[in-house]
C-alpha cells in the first residue's frame, strides 16, 4: 500500500505530521511525501522531522522527486514523477534508497523497469479528480498489460477505493496507492486496514 500526501489540495496545516504519527498505529506502508508548494528548505525540515517517526512505525518515507532531500533527511525512499531525471542516473546516485516511479505508458514502464527501479506506480486506473492532469483513466485491462510486461512490483493508482483494490491485485498489481481517502489523518490506520482487507496477503 502506498499512501500519498498532498497538502497542496487542502492546505491543512500539519496534516503530513499527523499522517506520519498515525502510521504508528497502522500496517507498514510507503508514505509518499508530495508537497509541491514547499521550498527545498521547508521540505528538508519536514522530512527530517517525520523520517524517524515513519521509520519507527516500520513504514517507508518516499520523498517525491528530490532524492537529494531524501538522502539528506534520512528518508528511505524516493518517488520519481514520469518527467524526472533519467531513472538510471537516479538509481546510481541513490545507493540504498528504494526508488519508485510514476508511469503512464508502457514505454516509460519498461524504461523504469530496466533501469533497476524498485517499483512502479501506474495509473490513473479509474477516474479521480486528483489525477486528472495525467489524462483519462487507463482502465484495468491496461493495468493488466503493464503488470504482465514488467518484472518489478506495480502499484495501481487513481480512484482506487478499498473495494476496487482486489480487482487491481487480480490484474497483477503488487499493491495500490491513494491520496484522497487519507486526508483525514485520524481515520488513516483504519482506512489502511480496510484497503488491506480487500487484498490477499
Amino acid at each position: 500500500m502506498i499512501v500519498s500526501s498532498g497538502g497542496e489540495h487542502l492546505a491543512q496545516r500539519g496534516l503530513v505530521q499527523k499522517q506520519a504519527q498515525a502510521l504508528a498505529h497502522s500496517a507498514p506502508v510507503i508514505f509518499q511525501i508530495r508537497e509541491k508548494m514547499l521550498d527545498a528548505s521547508s521540505l528538508w525540515a519536514l522530512c527530517h522531522e517525520i523520517a524517524p517517526v515513519i521509520d519507527a512505525a516500520g513504514s517507508i518515507l518516499a520523498v517525491n522527486e528530490r532524492f537529494d532531500i531524501a538522502l539528506a533527511a534520512g528518508a528511505k525512499g524516493v518517488h520519481l514523477p514520469e518527467s524526472s531525471c533519467p531513472a538510471d542516473t537516479v538509481r546510481k546516485a541513490t545507493k540504498g534508497l528504494i526508488v519508485g516511479q510514476s508511469v503512464h505508458s508502457e514505454t516509460s514502464a519498461l524504461k523504469a523497469s530496466s533501469a533497476g527501479l524498485d517499483y512502479l506506480l501506474f495509473g490513473p486506473v479509474f477516474h479521480t479528480p486528483s489525477k486528472e492532469p495525467f489524462g483519462p483513466p487507463q482502465g484495468l485491462e491496461r493495468l493488466r498489460e503493464i503488470c504482465a510486461k514488467v518484472r518489478i512490483p506495480v502499484f495501481a493508482v487513481g480512484g482506487i477505493t478499498p473495494d476496487k483494490a482486489l480487482a487491481c491485485i487480480e490484474c497483477g498489481a503488487w499493491g495500490v496507492a491513494a491520496l484522497t481517502p487519507f486526508l483525514d489523518a485520524g481515520s488513516m490506520p483504519e482506512t489502511i486496514s480496510r484497503y488491506l482487507s480487500f487484498m490477499p496477503s
Binding site: 521550498d39 528548505s41 521547508s42 532524492f67 532531500i69 539528506a72 531525471c85 542516473t89 546516485a93
Partner: peptide, 18 residues
C-alpha cells in the same frame, strides 16, 4: 538532485533551499 545526477561542478543555494 540534478547536480548529483549529472555531476555538475557545483550548486547555488538560496536561503530557501537545502
Amino acid at each position: 538532485d540534478i547536480a548529483l545526477a549529472m555531476q555538475a561542478d557545483g550548486v547555488h543555494l538560496g536561503q530557501q533551499d537545502m
